[in-house]
Design a protein around this nucleic acid. Sequence first.
DNA 1: TTATCATATGACTATACAGTCACATTATAT
DNA 2: ATATAATGTGACTGTATAGTCATATGATAA
Lengths: 216, 216
Amino acid sequence: MPSNTYYNLPTTKKDKIFKMALEEFTNNSYNDASITRMVETLKIAKGSIYQYFNNKKDLYFFLIEQVSTKKLEYISSNVKFETSDFIELYKQILKIGTRFDIEYPTYSIFLSKVFSGNHDPFKNETIDSMKLMSDNYIKNLIIQARDNGQIRKDIDIELIAFFLTEITTNIGRYIMKKNDINQQKLVSNIKNDTLNIQIEKALDDTLELIKKGILA
Amino acid sequence: MPSNTYYNLPTTKKDKIFKMALEEFTNNSYNDASITRMVETLKIAKGSIYQYFNNKKDLYFFLIEQVSTKKLEYISSNVKFETSDFIELYKQILKIGTRFDIEYPTYSIFLSKVFSGNHDPFKNETIDSMKLMSDNYIKNLIIQARDNGQIRKDIDIELIAFFLTEITTNIGRYIMKKNDINQQKLVSNIKNDTLNIQIEKALDDTLELIKKGILA
DNA sequence: TTATCATATGACTATACAGTCACATTATAT
DNA sequence: ATATAATGTGACTGTATAGTCATATGATAA
């Protein structure tokens, strides 16, 4: 947990430190991420960081908690659970999630690295339980939809869940790459609808593939 | 490139070093992988490693080259290009690739880390061109299949390629996890057909989803 | 003004790493 | 047996890191 000293910091300084830390841990594995490099870039003393956070791990877990919360809030504040049509509901979640990925690419990349757990020295129960919760959430939606006769019953539910999440986890970054979207472009186009339409179309097509497959 | 000294080593020693190095670079990012730790475990002098390889990067690239070659050979030596049915051909490739992933999980995980390029300090042209080749190969298969009327024409070919590769890249490890397959089990079951049948079924179901989607 | 608390600092410690090199050991050839 | 070449060795160098701590600076309150 960060100290009060950190929370009492002027917002600009707090944000600068947060942003820098997130960048450092996004571009490097936990061990490669360097506090020393951070403080050099930020032009603050090394001791300061250790007044804000107990240690490197504390800072890292703070980032995870903040970024996860941000994404969850973003999604839950936008989803409207009005439909009982699974596909429509899933489309909503997918669109909002993808919009988040595109609006906050650093957050999205950071999270995917944390969850992939590739070069993470911590077996973190928080992360594991979040992963489990998210998996179960999707699985329950699918079970309901199957019971309602919306989804085929001849294929293992877990395989369908894998199939869905595999696609939807990475579609955001695929769209960004494909349409050559970067943060500059985003800022200047955020109110330009052409970009939004392209994204919308890619997501609709993706769902069409998920629904009906690739056969002619 | 490794030195002649390395190639002249007795096979057992050579293999031990190779295996250890692969493990080290699979379990750690490039920078976290430690030559010092390797030689301590291997109980050889640090200087020896530097008689076999120019430096850490040299060793790393050697691993990439060896492991990629192994997978390519494994696949190309097993695929029979007899069918003009895209789905059948793709199923073949998928099954062989998955079999490789399951038989050589370390190789598979190593490769996926290299290709994801997450915490890799090198922008390696070899890797990039391999990725491009592989992408183009799949894309060409899809284009042919679409021209033959086997695949729907209303959806962007690149999205279909993304859709296919996204699933097939990770299905191997999903199956392993789901069926709780580890290397011990594999060795004892490699001639036991029950495991093979489970794997076969999961792959068939995956292809069924790819072909026709999830709708009832 | 003075005393007290909060915050900032950067030199310093301990540790780990890649890579080097002068020397030791072993194998091969004469 | 002797000379030559190939291989093995580990102490050492330079560099980077996380984390510490005595001290300095700033703010606040009496």
